[in-house]
């Protein structure tokens, strides 16, 4: 896209605007967003988004952004505060190294969703691509969460070091198993709650399977509740069926890796 002269955002209410992103370059669009937030705008509606990257980065405010169309890669990367709703699918790198905020995707999200996220929440109605929640981590009070309505592709939770991932498996037909391979490979922190069946060989060597306890059920209940509200599901229905909890077997999975000389 070569970009066109950005038109001024249409102010739809006192603190909200609508921006037509058609033909805008990534930089032009993000500039408009920065300006809007600087002007004290709290609610932004983006129309005709088509591949523009890094939306929501560098805003640093709990502004609400509704995206119509298909946002480009690294949606909400390094994001610190905004709440983004994508009315469509998200591409790769959604929530990359997110520090705080929320992304709700009314569709599926691509590869490395939630890569290295340190805090904030990502809700994906359908499925996620490869390596979702890879190296997600927690720090002090910060604890990221990724809730997936459908399933995940391979390497879900790879190197995961903290935070919570929930996979509800809603796309699975009766009797059908998850397809993801190498789930939680190298995982050394956090927890993955998974509904629907997986074979042992689909799990990374470093994860163990546990039954849920009351604390787990409380954590699950609250995040699934939020998920259900976003997508208008019945939370109870989503919580039915068997969940397993995947946790790292070791804090230091590679203890026996080295010989010292």
């Amino acid at each position: 896209m070569t970009g066109k002269e950005p038109t001024s955002p249409a102010v739809t209410a006192r603190d909200s605007v609508q921006i037509d992103a058609a033909g805008l370059t990534t930089q032009q669009l993000n500039d408009l967003l920065r300006r809007a937030v600087a002007d004290g705008i709290k609610k932004i509606e983006l129309r005709n988004v088509c591949g523009q990257r890094y939306i929501g980065t560098d805003l640093g405010q709990p502004v609400e952004i509704d995206i119509y169309g298909t946002p480009g890669n690294d949606l909400g990367s390094f994001m610190d505060g905004p709440r983004i709703r994508v009315h469509g699918n998200a591409q790769d790198g959604c929530g990359n190294t997110m520090n705080h905020g929320e992304i709700v995707v009314y569709g599926h999200a691509g590869d490395i969703t939630g890569l290295s996220a340190r805090d904030g929440k990502i809700f994906v109605r359908d499925y996620v691509g490869y390596r979702a929640a890879i190296h997600m981590k927690e720090y002090q009070e910060r604890k990221p969460a990724l809730v997936i309505g459908g399933t995940a592709q391979d390497f879900l939770g790879e190197y995961m070091a903290g935070g919570t991932v929930i996979v509800l498996g809603m796309e699975l037909k009766p009797g059908e198993k998850h397809r993801a391979r190498f789930i939680g490979t190298g995982m050394h922190g956090g927890a993955i709650y998974l509904r629907g069946e997986v074979e042992k060989y689909q799990l990374g060597k470093e994860v163990g399977v546990k039954e849920l306890d009351d604390n787990d059920r409380a954590a699950l209940g609250s995040l699934v509740g939020e998920f259900a509200r976003h997508f208008s599901y019945e939370a109870e229905a989503l919580l039915q069926g068997k969940f397993i909890k995947l946790v790292p077997l070791y804090l230091r999975p590679y203890g026996r890796l080295y010989a010292y000389g």
Binding site: V49, C50, G51, G69, T70, P71, G72, N73, G88, N89, Q91, H108, G110, D111, Y127, G129, Q153, D154, R179
Partner: peptide, 19 residues
């Protein structure tokens, strides 16, 4: 990228990420 498809065909029957 999916966005490039949506640009020329906003309404799709299916859009998916193959394994």
């Amino acid at each position: 990228e999916e966005s490039a498809i949506r640009l020329v065909c906003p309404e799709l029957d299916r859009a998916w990420i193959p394994m």
